[in-house]
């Protein structure tokens, strides 16, 4: 009996003493944090994508609460989240300028010829080490999807050997931009209607035509069609001036290779599911989760 009791006793005494130590440490070394920071962290999407310019959501929240700077915006949450954050913090947030990723290539399996029978590592960067590209066009999407792993929102997929952005999912965090060896991914302003040139080939028209039936051949028809002087051809490739462009679509109508593309974004603010779970911090701001009624009584 004593063989069991002795260790039991020793352990319980040890536990008690160590417990006291922990209690002492937690009181002595308590770091006071603003409860508002936790509230803001809970409201942010939590993807740590870095689109705001901070390493993650926690740092962004801390900075936002500390400075109450109305220009600090979570691009992913968009206007909806900005409004909620502003209500909590008692400031009026600036308008978020939503962006989304577009693909500057239009050459899929059927339109672009393949360069060689590539059987090596299925990664775009590995291809670029030994070949200009898997396809004959050296400027376009390689089509092996090295960017897909970087997207936390499932917004990228390969369709017919060409990367495709699923606009409903894309939040414009820009994590994929660095991951493309060909630089065919670009962040574009999110508007209801938005035109972009889906080609980067700087080869002359004949060569581009030979490699890809969807590539920009620098025919100048779009330049002539534009009434706002917003499009010009540089190095055999059309470039749209974002400042002048009114997204009227006259250029897209005349483009013989259909490489000026229209994207229609759904502009309704995305509903961010709020993740505040249980308690009320007594934050004195209008309640974001409708837990507190209008006359200060708890809503539940």
């Amino acid at each position: 009996m004593i063989e069991i009791l002795t260790p039991l006793l020793i352990l319980s005494v040890l536990t008690f003493v160590l417990g006291l130590c922990i209690l002492f440490a937690s009181k002595k070394f308590y770091v006071k944090t603003d409860p508002m920071v936790d509230t803001v962290i809970a409201m942010l999407p939590g993807a740590n994508c870095g689109a705001c310019g901070y390493p993650g959501c926690a740092q962004f929240a801390a900075e936002l609460v500390k400075t109450r700077d109305s220009s600090k915006i979570c691009p992913i949450g968009g206007d909806g989240l900005s409004y909620e954050l502003g209500r909590i913090l008692g400031i009026t947030m600036d308008e978020a300028k939503p962006v989304a990723c577009v693909v500057l290539c239009n050459g899929n399996e059927t339109t672009t010829k393949f360069l060689a029978d590539y059987k090596g590592i299925q990664d775009c960067w590995a291809v670029k080490e030994i070949l200009p590209s898997v396809k004959q066009c050296a400027y376009g999407c390689v089509g092996l999807g090295s960017c897909i792993a970087s997207c936390k929102y499932d917004a990228l997929k390969i369709v017919d050997g060409l990367i495709k952005v699923i606009f409903e999912n894309c939040v414009g965090c820009g994590a994929c931009i660095d991951k493309c060896p060909q630089h065919v991914l670009k962040l574009n302003e999110k508007k209801a209607r938005k035109y972009h040139v889906a080609c980067l080939s700087t080869d002359n028209g004949g060569v581009t035509r030979k490699y890809c039936s969807n590539g920009c051949i620098g025919c100048m028809l779009c330049v002539k069609a534009c009434k706002f002087d917003a499009i010009k051809v540089e190095n055999f490739c059309a470039v749209i001036d974002e400042k002048k462009c009114v997204n009227c679509g006259l250029c897209a109508k005349v483009c013989p290779v259909k490489c000026i593309q229209l994207t229609k974004y759904a502009m309704a603010p995305k509903k961010i599911p709020l993740k505040i779970e249980d308690s009320c911090d007594g934050c004195n701001a209008p309640c974001p989760v409708k837990e507190v009624g209008e006359n200060g009584t708890l809503g539940y």
């Binding site: 090596g120 960067w125 670029k128």
Partner: peptide, 16 residues
Amino acid sequence: RDLVHWIKYAKVMNAN
């Protein structure tokens, strides 16, 4: 296994 190609790939990614 494509050992050399993977090593070349690692060199490129490191430079990146």
